[in-house]
Amino acid sequence: MLRRIALLIALLVAVPVAAHQQKVAISTIALNSRTERIELAHQVPVHDAEHALRFQGAKDPDIIGSAASREAFATYVTRRFRLWVDGELVTPEYVGSEIVGGNLMVYQDMPAPAEAAQFTVNSQILTDLWARQQNRVNIGGGTKVETFVFTVNTAARDFTL
């Protein structure tokens, strides 16, 4: 009996914590040397994504159960994540999305430049909702990863791949 009461209390405390916005999105930009394409992956907590859709006027968004909700949020992500190559704004192709754990993953890719290029990035995903939103952008892969952290007024950052 005491064990059941303890379990009930633990559940009551844990559920509200799980429902809070995480206010952190993680993006990764990496060169796939096999395909000669630059791959982008954006990871956003499902709860945050649904909150953003409500903010945009969607009624009862359901990221997990509705492909339309997932696609609507994926479109939002691709608008709020900006990438420039040699000073020119580019729009990587939208590849798709999926749910992984409690996160919505949004995938994009683009051809790698034929020659060395200067890249510039700015991630403003969800900064229009929360002033405390943090977006981490990991550049590269393996043991050579550089991480930028973007908030509501952070300037774009330069990098090379």
Rank of each mutant, 00 (worst) to 15 (best):
T35S: 15
R136D: 05
Y76H: 05
F55R: 08
P45Y: 12
H47R: 12
G140V: 10
Q118C: 01
V145C: 00
K59V: 15
I38Q: 00
I5A: 14
L53D: 07
R37T: 13
P45L: 12
T151D: 10
T143K: 14
V121E: 02
R4K: 13
Y107Q: 08
L8G: 11
A58V: 11
G142A: 10
Q133Y: 08
A155E: 15
R37L: 10
R54G: 00
F159P: 02
Q21F: 02
A41M: 12
I29G: 04
A114T: 14
Q21I: 00
Q56H: 06
R157S: 07
N103G: 05
G140A: 11
A19I: 01
I5R: 13
E115H: 11
N103V: 06
P45H: 14
L83Q: 09
V15R: 02
D109N: 15
I5F: 15
R34C: 01
I139T: 07
Q43H: 08
E93P: 00
W130M: 11
R80S: 15
P111K: 14
G101S: 09
D62Q: 09
E146N: 13
Q56F: 08
D86K: 06
V85E: 09
G141L: 04
A68V: 06
I5K: 10
V24I: 14
D128V: 09
T75I: 01
E115C: 01
L161F: 13
F55M: 09
R80F: 04
A30N: 04
M105C: 04
V13G: 09
D109G: 04
I9K: 07
T160L: 08
N153F: 05
N135S: 09
T75F: 03
V95M: 10
T127S: 04
F55Q: 10
N122V: 10
A72C: 05
R34M: 13
A74T: 09
I5V: 15
T143G: 10
R70E: 00
T160S: 15
L7W: 11
L11T: 10
K23N: 13
F159A: 05
V149G: 05
I125N: 07
N103S: 14
A112M: 01
L31T: 07
R132I: 11
R136P: 00
F55G: 09
A19Q: 13
R82H: 12
K144E: 14
R4N: 09
R136T: 03
Q56A: 14
A116V: 02
N122Q: 15
G141E: 12
S33N: 12
A6F: 12
A117K: 11
T143P: 00
V24W: 07
A52R: 10
I9A: 10
W84N: 02
D109K: 02
K144W: 03
T78W: 02
D109P: 01
R54L: 08
E93A: 14
V100R: 14
A10T: 11
A68E: 14
F55V: 08
P92F: 08
I26H: 06
S33G: 03
Q56G: 00
Y76W: 06
A67S: 11
M110D: 03
I38A: 02
E98G: 09
A25Y: 00
A14P: 06
T28K: 09
K144G: 00
K59M: 06
D109S: 13
P92W: 01
L53W: 05
L129D: 09
Q118T: 15
R157I: 03
G102C: 06
G87T: 04
L40V: 12
T91W: 03
N153K: 10
A72R: 12
